[in-house]
Design a protein around this nucleic acid. Structure first.
Length: 1031
RNA sequence: GCGGGAGUGGCGGAAUGGUAGACGCGAUGGUCUCAAACACCAUUGACUUUACGGUCGUGCGAGUUCGAGUCUCGCUUCCCGCACCA
């Protein structure tokens, strides 16, 4: 019987749903396994073929684990707050909830179509008040906790206030703002309620703070660091400015070290871990105070990772934004300094990053004293020093640091060598740590390893410095000046923020008349009548930072996730998604998770044990070429007029370079004829040429490009028209057939004949292109090709060129999985995506090989049929048949475990080819294969499983057990190598002894030929592998 | 500049240090068909040879080993990430 996925697949999807096949309980005697996909944002564009790649992998794994006897949690939901829906709302006035709902419906439909085993009863949406109630609840917990460095975890703020009341904060070791003063108990107790609350904000894990933020005017919102790429917004590519704003901030820096250390405990892809390490940016070094000449208590504190180079300091550099700059600048320098500050503030991030080579800066007029050697060094300002990193000041060591070296050269500052191994200081800095110190006082003659501890010890003893660890990671801005996000559950009383009581949650997003900021520039929530709460909303990452717990217990109204559910599911066993979330979602989720773990609310410090990144599926764009007027001229010359040369004599050719001298496109001496090629719409031009022809006494033929387009595949017709003109006496002729075409497209296979300027390259919808050949029938239905004609090649084909680009609507290269499913079936689509290659690799979408997978499925199916009859034999399988089966069990089981899905598909193909060769239709062989195929092609497997007589789902079957004995053979074809090169093969018993094997190998003619009578130096025999004879 | 990953036929890609190129696509020849599509069979790394066979071959160059796509060192190209981070 023919395999018809179109009939089988919808049937089983319905059956699975009606029988709740994928519903999972939070209990059971089976071991648990949690497979999670990254939360999709339901965009209006729907899914393209790249999105399901990871979902297919997780679906295969989920089904496989289930067949292996696990209770598998495999949920799906939506990260449904976000910018695009709001942008759309601004344009159309439609509430984002409505468009989001529509987009979700579309996503769901597309996901269903691929046959995933999601437990939809657990679906969650971040924009649902029942969900964001708990996002808000977590926010309140963050507000109510501070990070205690002694406990090395978050503790309640109430514990802090108790301590403050008793002993002040001198003994409190906690993460807090840099400017937190030391206060006594008396001072604390003497504070007003407002003063106390403001003081506590310096400790809370989330707090409103004045921060330099990435302000994006085009989006009307701030962006977090991970949302900014190369100085522009990641979404939309709008310019971003640095701006000081009052914002809710998450004190993620408190967790910097734990987030870093935690990476060593999880099985995540190396690239993600590396990106996170990079983002956290831990530097171990020292902090050193430099006194300022002429000031009593003014110090410049710097952070350095090379404290050993302190004797090489020849100047200091401050970031221009620092307040200290104004204090230090001398009267003579104040104009220059102010000018520089103004200039550098006006520079955009992009400009700053663009010229990192050229050093700019200004001397402040002030001097600092190097504490190590008492030397007086000038203090400069320069924008190569960042205000946001460390203290915003550096000790410049031009001999060891290239940036300092560049600066020193630009401004003629001294370069002092400090190690006897430093070389080439005339041309560049040498950051070596080798050799012994010179010009370095107390550390002269020491090595790096000796000098660093010695210096730190000395600095600490003198009270001018200490060993310090610095992180690049900044606190995360949590406010967005937007509408479509979670309201922040806080209200302001007399400029002091108070979070809501748990009983007041959820704080539901109010309705507003417009989704734009108010005239006074306040966020959209200011438009809501009677809104007395915080006006900004939470960022996209709020809801997605804890969603994996909500799936465990999606409908709980009294707690974000019950303890029972958490105890049962624990953490995510397998997490898959794109690497674009490497430092956004994946770092913030880990942060929240560490916090929730500190509060004893979740069982593990890390929420996901294993993480795999799927590679991006890129688009394969197709291009067509549209003819310009120049094309028609070249075409006439090449295809039509050349053959006329002999018959009618010389032809003059016009061209863009000669337009002044030659008025006409072509001119014949014969009969005084000139030819002009132009669109019939160019009335002025035709008139001008006509007048010129009359003046010159020439006869004129005007060939309309529209007419040429119509006859482009019939050069004879065009030639006939020209011949007619050459042979008659009319003074003015035009092509005046009824014209149905306007534009001409030229097959890519032909364009090499024409100049590049004669054609325009345009994207064409890849869905009407097959193997780079344009389907002309489908094309004519598209607006782009209405009234168009196509110049086809000799085979009558119209070919397109192609390029690999990102898959996107604007490039017309989006392939909808629905189309592939409609043509080949969901099972084929799933297996084909897996067959493309290792899932971690990026690759362009190309359906070239899909027929191979499709053919495999049909072959697999046909093993169960004889003509129209389902026919499976109950006979005992042969050893050969069993060997094929068990070989396949072994390979597929191993390969799923290492997430090598492409080779799994190959193994199914091999088994199918082998079994068809053996004409096997035995139940004992085919039934286990059906079970193994089920995770990959669930619909076909379910159909065959039922045809095999089962009434339950194939997913309640058991994964077949591999039996080593059954793949053993009696003999083995051994390769015989001479000096490591294959020279012969020999069939030998599997259990042969080394001596016998060697003897048999040496006896071979081919071996004797190579030996030429010599005795081999050595014979290597690897049982079951090979024999190597060394001569 | 720093960090991570990768270079294998015409293409996608396989290969616990042990027969390189599995599987699939494409291509060529054939069977079936009025024909096409589908299906099926055979061949398919390069060079060489009538043939048996031989030589070369996993980016380049060395090394370790009986044996290297795989391990080590150096170079090179490409992709990704980070980047005045002191």
């Amino acid at each position: 019987m023919e395999y018809r996925p179109g009939d089988i697949e919808p049937k089983w999807r319905k059956w699975w749903q009606e029988n709740y096949v994928y519903q999972v309980k939070n209990q059971g005697d089976k071991p648990k396994y949690y497979v999670l996909d990254m939360f999709p944002y339901p965009s209006g564009a729907g899914l393209h073929v790249g999105h399901p790649l990871g979902y297919i992998v997780s679906d295969i794994l989920a089904r496989y684990k289930r067949l292996q006897g696990f209770n598998v949690l495999h949920p799906m939901g939506y990260d449904s707050f976000g910018l695009p829906a709001e942008q759309y709302a601004i344009q159309t006035g439609q509430h984002p909830a409505i468009t989001t709902e529509q987009n979700i419906a579309r996503y769901r439909e597309q996901l269903e179509n691929i046959g995933f085993s999601f437990d939809w009863s657990r679906e969650v949406r971040t924009s649902d008040p029942g969900y964001y109630k708990w996002t808000q609840w977590i926010f309140i917990q963050l507000f109510n906790h501070y990070y205690d460095l002694e406990a090395d975890k978050a503790l309640p703020v109430s514990a802090l206030t108790t301590r403050l009341a008793k002993t002040g904060n001198a003994t409190v070791r906690a993460v807090c703002d840099d400017d937190t003063p030391i206060i006594s108990a008396a001072e604390w107790n003497g504070m007003s309620e407002k003063e106390q609350q403001l003081f506590l904000l310096k400790y809370r894990i989330t707090f409103p703070g004045e921060e330099y933020v990435n302000w994006c005017p085009a989006l009307g919102s701030v962006l977090s660091n991970d949302e900014v790429k190369d100085g522009v917004s990641e979404r939309g590519g709008h310019p971003v400015e640095r701006k000081l704003m009052k914002q809710w901030v998450m004190r993620i820096t408190a967790y910097a070290n734990r987030l870093l250390e935690g990476l060593n405990t999880i099985d995540w892809s190396e690239s993600i871990k590396e990106q996170q390490r990079n983002w956290i940016g831990k530097s171990v070094g020292a902090s050193v105070k430099f006194a300022v000449e002429g000031y009593e208590n003014q110090y410049i504190e710097v952070f350095t990772t090379r404290v050993d180079t302190i004797f090489g300091v020849s100047f200091m550099v401050l970031a221009p934004e620092l307040d200290l700059v104004k204090t230090l600048t001398t009267a003579e320098q104040s104009n220059a300094v102010e000018g520089y500050i103004k200039w550098s503030a006006g520079r955009s991030e992009i400009e700053r990053m663009a010229d990192t080579k050229k050093a700019t800066g200004v001397f402040t007029g002030a001097y600092a004293i190097n504490p190590a050697n008492g030397m007086r060094v000038p203090i400069w300002i320069a924008d190569y020093v960042l205000a946001s990193y460390g203290t915003g000041a550096v000790m410049a060591v031009p001999s060891g640091d290239q940036r300092d070296w560049n600066f020193a050269k630009e401004f003629n500052l001294p370069v002092t060598p400090i190690l006897n191994t430093q070389q080439g200081l005339d041309t560049a800095a040498d950051p070596t740590k080798e050799g012994q110190y010179i010009n370095s006082g107390m550390i002269n003659g020491m090595t790096y390893a000796e000098a660093v501890p010695k210096l730190i010890q000395w600095l600490e003893k003198e009270g001018i410095g200490r060993g310090k660890t610095q992180y690049k990671l900044r606190n995360a801005v949590f406010s967005r000046q937007r509408y479509w996000g979670e309201p922040v559950p806080a209200r302001w009383v007399d400029d002091v923020p108070y979070v809501l009581d748990e009983k007041e949650l959820p704080l539901v997003l109010p309705t507003v008349d417009k989704y734009l900021p108010t005239e006074s520039g306040e966020p959209p929530l200011a438009r809501a009548a009677g809104w007395e709460y915080e006006l900004s909303t939470m960022p996209g990452w709020a809801g997605s930072s804890w969603y994996f717990y909500r799936y465990m217990d999606p409908n709980n109204e009294s707690v974000f996730c019950s303890k029972e559910a958490l105890d049962y599911w624990q953490q995510v066993d397998f997490y898959i998604g794109g690497s674009e979330h490497a430092v956004g979602h994946l770092l913030y989720s880990r942060f929240w998770n560490h916090f929730l773990h500190d509060l004893g609310l979740v069982p593990h410090r890390e929420f996901a044990k294993r993480l795999v990144n799927q590679g991006m599926i890129q688009g394969r764009s197709n291009f067509v070429y549209r003819a310009k007027e120049r094309f028609f001229e070249e075409y006439l010359m090449i295809k039509v007029l050349k053959p006329f040369l002999e018959e009618y004599g010389p032809i003059m050719i016009g061209g863009p370079n000669y337009e002044e001298e030659i008025k006409y496109d072509f001119a014949f001496e014969t009969n005084n004829l000139v030819i002009e090629v132009t669109s019939k719409k160019q009335l002025d031009k035709i008139e001008r040429i006509h007048t010129a022809a009359i003046t010159d006494g020439k006869r004129l033929l005007v060939l309309h490009t529209e007419w040429l387009t119509q006859h482009i595949n019939e050069p004879d017709v065009v030639a006939g028209r020209i011949r007619l003109a050459l042979n008659n006496k009319d003074n003015y002729m035009t092509t005046e057939d009824p014209i149905r075409t306007e534009q001409l497209f030229v097959s890519h296979s032909l364009i090499y004949k024409y100049s590049p300027e004669s054609l325009t390259q345009l994207h064409v919808d890849v869905n009407i292109v097959d193997n780079d050949i344009l389907d002309l029938e489908k094309a004519r239905k598209q607006p782009m090709f209405a009234n168009a004609n196509f110049k086809v090649d000799a085979d009558g084909k119209f070919t397109c060129s192609w390029e690999v680009e990102k898959m996107s609507k604007s490039k017309f290269n989006v392939v909808n999985p629905d189309d592939i499913v409609a043509e080949y079936g969901a099972d084929c689509f799933r297996m084909f995506e897996m067959f493309l290659g290792p899932i971690t690799d990026a690759k362009p979408w190309n359906t070239k090989g899909i027929t191979g997978v499709s053919g495999f499925l049909r072959k697999f199916w046909s093993m169960f049929f004889e003509g129209e009859q389902f026919r499976v034999s109950d006979a005992e399988p042969t050893r050969d048949e069993l060997r094929v089966l068990h070989q396949c069990i072994k390979k597929v089981t191993d390969d799923i475990d290492r997430i090598s899905m492409n080779t799994c598909v190959s193994h199914f193909m091999i088994a199918t080819n082998d079994l068809r060769g053996l004409k096997c239709n035995k139940r004992a062989i085919l039934e286990p294969l059906v079970v193994m195929l089920a995770p990959f092609g669930p619909h076909m497997a379910e159909e065959l499983w039922h045809l095999l007589g089962h009434l339950n789902s194939v997913f309640d079957a058991t994964w077949p057990q591999f039996n080593e004995e059954l793949i053993k053979t009696d003999t083995k074809e051994y390769p015989i190598q001479i000096n490591g090169k294959l020279r012969a093969t020999i069939e030998l018993p599997t259990d042969i002894s080394a001596t016998d094997a060697e003897a048999a190998a040496l006896a071979l003619d081919q071996v004797q030929k190579w030996l030429e009578g010599q005795t081999p130096k050595k014979v290597v025999f690897v049982p079951g592998r090979m024999i190597n004879i060394v001569i």
